[in-house]
Simulated scan of single mutants.
Amino acid sequence: MIDRKSPVPMYYQIEKYIEQLIETRNLRAGDQIPSEREFTDQFHVSRMTVRQAVLDLVNSGILVRIKGKGTFVADQLKIEKALQGVNGFSEDMISRGMKPGSKMLSFACITPSAKVAQKLSIDSQDKVIEIKRTRLADDEPMAIEISYLPQKLVPNLAEADLTLSLYQYIEQKCNLEIDHAEQSIEAVIVTAGEADILKVPKGSPVLLIERCSYLKNKQSIEYTKSLYRADRYKFMVTLPRG
């Protein structure tokens, strides 16, 4: 409960109270939390104090706001991805016993930007296949993924081929062997449009992942930019000493 004599700020004590309700399973994933007015009446504090506590928990991914409905306990289960090996999204989800899926946003053959051409080590006039998809796990949006592939390496790739893993298509249909990938991860904030696609609050933090995949001959086969939901995804790495 709230200790008015404590030097700990009131809003922070309310945060910890709500977290305790979740930890003790008095509030479960998907449950709606009490309204600001209810917390105000319960703790005899200002609505601004309650609002600060709730906002901090929303920004931490513990709570989620749904416009026109209220604030709910977020699903705390995160998908773990080891930063080892070159696996596609579909392969990752299947390995976790989840059903992978995609919603196609666009599929086109385009002239690449200077950055994409540089990443793929191709001439700026060479064509690339651009694939924009929402990636799903058990029908829930997990990421927005934009992939670029040199058309000359996948000349027959069509939208219909992407019902399965893109990496499986490259290796099984094109007889190309993916050797390794280079990847970077950073935190960014979603735009309003990206938030709608991922079903997260506007201004939510997400993980921006950029990956270049290479064949045995060191030719770039794919450059991908992905936005992963930070509230549902985390990355794990094993660090050997020395």
Results as ranks from 00 to 15, higher is better:
84 Q>H: 12
86 V>H: 12
87 N>P: 00
87 N>L: 08
93 M>V: 00
94 I>H: 11
94 I>P: 03
96 R>H: 12
97 G>K: 09
98 M>I: 03
99 K>A: 09
99 K>H: 03
99 K>Y: 07
100 P>A: 13
100 P>T: 09
103 K>P: 00
103 K>T: 07
105 L>R: 14
105 L>D: 00
106 S>C: 12
108 A>I: 05
111 T>N: 13
113 S>Y: 05
113 S>K: 11
113 S>Q: 07
114 A>K: 13
115 K>M: 08
116 V>M: 02
120 L>E: 15
122 I>E: 09
124 S>G: 02
125 Q>A: 15
126 D>I: 07
126 D>L: 05
129 I>G: 13
132 K>A: 10
134 T>E: 13
134 T>W: 06
135 R>L: 08
137 A>G: 12
137 A>E: 04
137 A>W: 08
138 D>M: 05
139 D>K: 15
141 P>R: 15
143 A>C: 02
143 A>P: 01
144 I>L: 11
145 E>G: 02
145 E>S: 13
145 E>Q: 09
146 I>A: 11
147 S>M: 06
148 Y>H: 14
150 P>M: 03
150 P>K: 00
150 P>Y: 06
151 Q>N: 01
151 Q>G: 11
151 Q>A: 05
152 K>C: 04
153 L>K: 10
154 V>E: 07
158 A>W: 12
160 A>L: 01
162 L>F: 05
165 S>D: 10
165 S>E: 14
168 Q>G: 02
169 Y>P: 07
169 Y>A: 04
170 I>P: 08
171 E>Y: 10
172 Q>I: 03
173 K>Q: 07
175 N>K: 06
176 L>A: 05
177 E>Y: 10
177 E>N: 10
180 H>V: 09
180 H>A: 04
181 A>D: 00
183 Q>G: 09
184 S>D: 10
186 E>G: 11
188 V>W: 02
